[in-house]
Computed example of a mutant assay.
Amino acid sequence: MQYPTPPSAIYPAETIEAHRAFIARRLRPDPAQRGRLEEIRDNLIARIAEAEREGWLGEVEGLRVSLAGADEKLMQLDARLHRRSSEVFLGVPSIEQTGARDLDASRHVGSP
Rank of each mutant, 00 (worst) to 15 (best):
11 Y>P: 14
44 L>V: 01
50 E>M: 02
48 I>L: 08
57 L>K: 12
84 R>W: 08
13 A>S: 11
37 L>V: 06
64 R>Y: 01
32 A>S: 06
78 D>P: 06
61 E>F: 07
17 E>T: 02
87 E>P: 07
62 G>M: 11
80 R>W: 07
92 V>C: 02
60 V>R: 04
53 R>L: 01
87 E>C: 13
21 A>R: 08
58 G>T: 12
46 A>G: 08
55 G>M: 05
25 R>D: 04
27 L>N: 09
26 R>D: 10
39 E>C: 02
77 L>Q: 00
29 P>W: 13
83 R>H: 10
60 V>D: 02
89 F>W: 13
9 A>T: 09
92 V>W: 03
91 G>N: 03
84 R>H: 08
42 D>G: 12
13 A>R: 10
42 D>S: 12
56 W>G: 00
32 A>C: 02
33 Q>Y: 09
40 I>A: 06
8 S>P: 06
11 Y>N: 15
45 I>N: 12
77 L>C: 03
20 R>T: 09
48 I>Y: 07
71 D>F: 00
13 A>F: 06
57 L>A: 09
53 R>V: 01
68 A>P: 02
83 R>Q: 14
39 E>K: 11
91 G>C: 04
51 A>D: 01
16 I>T: 05
48 I>H: 11
10 I>A: 10
49 A>V: 02
67 L>W: 03
30 D>A: 14
13 A>W: 06
30 D>Q: 09
52 E>G: 08
17 E>L: 12
38 E>H: 03
55 G>Q: 06
19 H>Q: 05
69 G>P: 06
14 E>P: 01
51 A>R: 00
74 L>E: 04
78 D>I: 15
13 A>I: 05
61 E>Q: 06
47 R>A: 13
52 E>T: 14
28 R>C: 08
16 I>G: 03
12 P>D: 08
90 L>K: 15
47 R>Q: 14
65 V>Q: 03
76 Q>P: 00
13 A>P: 00
28 R>F: 11
73 K>F: 07
66 S>G: 07
82 H>L: 15
39 E>Y: 01
78 D>W: 04
92 V>P: 02
35 G>Y: 01
61 E>R: 13
68 A>K: 13
47 R>S: 10
47 R>D: 12
54 E>G: 04
62 G>Q: 12
59 E>K: 08
52 E>S: 12
62 G>R: 12
11 Y>M: 15
48 I>D: 08
33 Q>I: 10
27 L>Q: 11
56 W>L: 00
47 R>N: 13
39 E>G: 02
46 A>K: 04
29 P>T: 14
10 I>K: 12
51 A>C: 00
56 W>V: 00
44 L>P: 07
34 R>P: 01
35 G>F: 00
74 L>A: 05
9 A>F: 03
17 E>Y: 02
14 E>M: 01
60 V>C: 04
29 P>M: 14
20 R>H: 10
85 S>K: 15
20 R>D: 11
70 A>K: 02
83 R>D: 15
28 R>Q: 14
42 D>F: 07
49 A>P: 07
70 A>Q: 01
78 D>K: 03
66 S>W: 07
30 D>L: 12
23 I>A: 06
29 P>E: 14
81 L>N: 11
